[in-house]
């Protein structure tokens, strides 16, 4: 049994000569001699402000819990929470942001600056179709567009899907307003009521063609 006076031979490499073993033991003793006392606990009091900060943090987090608990409902997620906190049942849904609708739906084809892609997707920036009466834009968004169309002197022949099932009247109005007032376009805003009226007037309408659109009533 190894003890304080008898080094544990098994812990030394077996092939060493006696002199090398003694040398290693001596190095080890020297290493173990340059140590300070094992750590102890000091008994100084904690600085007063540590307690003050601790209590303040606990209190403020109590308020945070009251503010954001979502009534501990399993239904409450982030958006629900904001509406519920805002003003109870009176909190109306905020109007949709046209730029967000554009970024989520239109941007992949019509690009960030409304430039479109040459030969594939027509531009919206400076497009005469955007500047035309809003009744045309609303129809294209509701039901889609297919076949050849002339935009800024170039012919495109592609297919745009209808978004009537995907977007609400308010969202269609918002994104059209956004397109008509950005990318250098300066057409007036689009009203949600007009979108609703056209949606009602054209049930079961399939994709439009450029020709059909030019005969659209104002």
């Amino acid at each position: 049994m190894p003890g304080p006076d008898k080094p544990d031979r098994r812990s030394l490499p077996p092939l060493l000569g006696e002199a090398e073993r003694q040398d290693i033991l001596q190095i080890h003793r020297a290493i173990l001699s340059r140590e300070r006392v094992e750590p102890q606990e000091g008994m100084e009091p904690a600085p007063w402000w540590v307690w003050v900060v601790s209590v303040l943090v606990i209190f403020s987090m109590g308020f945070y819990l009251g503010r954001y608990s979502g009534t501990f409902s399993t239904e409450a997620h982030e958006l629900y929470q904001k509406a519920a906190v805002g003003g109870g049942e009176a909190a109306a849904e905020p109007p949709p942001d046209g730029s967000l609708v554009y970024a989520g739906i239109c941007l992949p084809c019509h690009q960030a600056g409304g430039t479109g892609v040459e030969g594939k997707y027509p531009p919206l920036a400076g497009s005469e179709w955007v500047a035309k009466d809003s009744a045309i834009g609303i129809r294209i968004l509701l039901h889609g567009l297919q076949g050849p169309i002339q935009v800024k002197g170039k012919t495109f022949n592609n297919e745009m899907p209808g978004l009537g099932n995907q977007l609400s009247d308010a969202e269609i109005a918002a994104v059209l307003t956004y397109v008509r007032s950005n990318f250098g376009n300066k057409a007036p805003a689009v009203d949600t009521k007009q979108v609703a009226a056209i949606r009602q007037a054209t049930p079961g309408q399939g994709p439009w063609t450029a020709q059909a659109l030019s005969g659209v009533p104002k």
Partner: peptide, 12 residues
């Protein structure tokens, strides 16, 4: 504390 050689400041 081991390298410095003094106790840790405060048990509390």
């Amino acid at each position: 504390p081991k390298v410095i050689g003094r106790p840790i400041y405060s048990y509390y």
